[in-house]
Simulated assay, not measured.
Amino acid sequence: MTFLIYLAAALAEIAGCFAFWAWLRLDKSPLWLVPGGVSLALFAYLLTLVDADQAGRAYAAYGGIYILSSLAWMWLAEGARPDRWDMIGASICVLGAAIIFFGPRAALSA
């Protein structure tokens, strides 16, 4: 379930950021900012649904999924296929995210 939440959050963040990109860089209407802002708010909400004890750890682990999703966006939405260096870098990041999220933790003593 965590992976699906991260994937939904990544799509919401990328879509929100792309709306700003479209407005500033692609000369789209400022009305693009409305769904962009809603999408970024949805992204923030979705990250609160992740079952993690610390927000920072949830955000750090999310980073790997975000990078992989960004490359998928680049390929599917922008038509630019990721090269091997993109995929190697994304693989390293996803591995790092998995280590952060699933690594064993020492119990905190009160």
Rank of each mutant, 00 (worst) to 15 (best):
Phe20Asn: 00
Val34Pro: 09
Ile14Lys: 00
Val50Ser: 09
Phe18Lys: 03
Leu31Gln: 09
Leu40Phe: 08
Ala41Cys: 14
Leu46Ile: 05
Gln54Arg: 10
Gly36Asp: 04
Pro35Ile: 02
Gly16Phe: 09
Val34Gln: 12
Cys17His: 02
Leu26Lys: 15
Ser29Met: 06
Ala15Cys: 11
Leu47Arg: 00
Pro30Ala: 11
Ser29Gln: 06
Leu40Met: 10
Phe43Gln: 05
Leu46Met: 08
Phe20His: 05
Pro35Cys: 06
Leu42Asp: 06
Gly16Cys: 11
Val34Met: 11
Gly16Thr: 04
Thr48Leu: 12
Thr48Gly: 12
Ala52His: 10
Ala19Lys: 02
Ala15His: 03
Ala52Pro: 04
Trp23Val: 00
Asp51His: 09
Ile14Ala: 01
Gly16Arg: 03
Phe18Pro: 00
Phe18Thr: 11
Pro35Met: 07
Leu33His: 03
Ser29Lys: 03
Val50Leu: 11
Ser39His: 09
Asp53Arg: 13
Leu40Ala: 03
Trp23Ser: 02
Ala41Ser: 12
Leu24Phe: 14
Leu26Asn: 12
Pro30Tyr: 12
Pro35Ala: 07
Leu33Asn: 03
Lys28Gln: 13
Gly37Phe: 08
Gly16Val: 04
Gly37Thr: 00
Phe20Ser: 02
Leu24Gln: 14
Ala19Met: 13
Trp32Ser: 03
Ala15Trp: 05
Trp21Ile: 04
Gly16Pro: 08
Asp51Pro: 07
Ile14Arg: 02
Ala15Asp: 02
Phe18Asp: 06
Ala44Trp: 08
Tyr45Val: 07
Ala22Asn: 07
Ala41Leu: 15
Ser39Phe: 12
Leu24Lys: 15
Pro30Lys: 06
